[in-house]
Simulated assay, not measured.
Amino acid sequence: MRQITDLEFSLIESKVKKSADKIGLDDRSTGFLYLILDSLFPRSGEDISSLITDGGSDRGVDAVYIQESGNVAHISIVQSKYASTIKSAGRTFPGNEIDKLISFIRDLVDRVAGLPESVNPLLRGKIVDIWRLVDQGKMIYIHIFLVSNALPLATHERKRLDAFCSQYEFISVEELSYQSIISLISSDGRTKEDGILDTVDVQKYERADCDIRGLVANVDARSYIDMISNEGGKTTSLR
């Protein structure tokens, strides 16, 4: 991947500054994390703080988002790295952070007894919630987000992380480097269409893939046809 340009770096910086100002903190790193979480997950700004686990003894986990749907629970684990200068934005995602994540997730899925006591209270609460869902018989799917306004992992580090994840059918990983970040924060300018869909059961859950956010559900086909149809009965494409 090419190096980030000054224009791209400045665009992200302006969004980070607005995010930091919004939460009343003079901390760009936290502002960046808030910006990303607000873009990845369809939640209000007041709720973002409930996702954050960043701080001392966070085991490399900056945020955790838990989404339940029937007998399934989707766990999003976010590790965020903010480059404060364009020079540092030219570096790859730090490989030593992968070791922290691998160690934490291994302890999480193996239910190591001392794990909750080894982390900060914010992360401890998330661990307790995840293990409670397992005890309730829910299937757990873990999706790791590596987010940075710099470059992605070096190839050998990504292969190492992929090798770890491949040991588990329920663990996946996604990198969001500066190009993906720009796509995320620029999505507000897209043309939007409104409509109403009827679901046929109560099982539905939210999900996010980079700049695409949505709701997974069983939809009544008639309501879909009505939504994409003009008054004259002709259908129209949705953006």
Rank of each mutant, 00 (worst) to 15 (best):
Lys22Leu: 14
Lys22Ser: 15
Ile23Thr: 09
Leu25His: 09
Asp26Ala: 13
Gly31Ser: 10
Tyr34Arg: 08
Ile36Gln: 07
Asp38Trp: 09
Ser39Ala: 11
Phe41Leu: 04
Gly45Cys: 01
Ile48Trp: 02
Ile52Glu: 02
Gly56Asn: 12
Gly56Pro: 03
Val61Met: 09
Val61Thr: 06
Asp62Asn: 10
Val64Tyr: 01
Gln67Pro: 00
Gly70His: 03
Ser76Cys: 07
Val78Cys: 11
Gln79Glu: 05
Ser80Asn: 13
Ala83Gln: 12
Lys87Gln: 13
Lys87Glu: 15
Ser88Gly: 01
Ala89Gly: 03
Gly90Ala: 09
Arg91Ala: 10
Thr92Tyr: 13
Gly95Arg: 10
Gly95Met: 01
Glu97Lys: 13
Ile105Thr: 06
Pro116Leu: 09
Pro116Val: 09
Ser118Met: 11
Lys126Phe: 04
Val134Thr: 13
Gln136Lys: 15
Gly137Val: 09
Met139Gly: 08
His143Gln: 14
Leu151Val: 01
Leu151His: 05
Pro152Asp: 04
Leu153Ser: 06
Thr155Gln: 15
Lys159Gly: 00
Arg160Ile: 01
Asp162Ser: 13
Cys165Asp: 05
Ser172His: 06
Val173Pro: 02
Val173His: 10
Val173Thr: 15
Glu174Gln: 14
Gln179Phe: 07
Ser183Met: 06
Ser183Lys: 13
Asp188Cys: 03
Thr191Gln: 08
Thr191Val: 12
Lys192Met: 11
Glu193His: 13
Glu193Val: 09
Glu193Pro: 00
Gly195Trp: 09
Gly195Cys: 08
Asp201Tyr: 06
Asp201Ala: 05
Val202His: 12
Gln203Gly: 00
Tyr205Asp: 02
Tyr205Ala: 07
Arg207Gly: 04
Cys210Lys: 10
Gly214Asn: 00
Gly214Asp: 03
Leu215His: 09
Leu215Glu: 12
Ala217Arg: 02
Val219Thr: 09
Met227Gly: 00
Ser229Gln: 10
Lys234Ala: 11
Ser237Glu: 08
Leu238Thr: 06
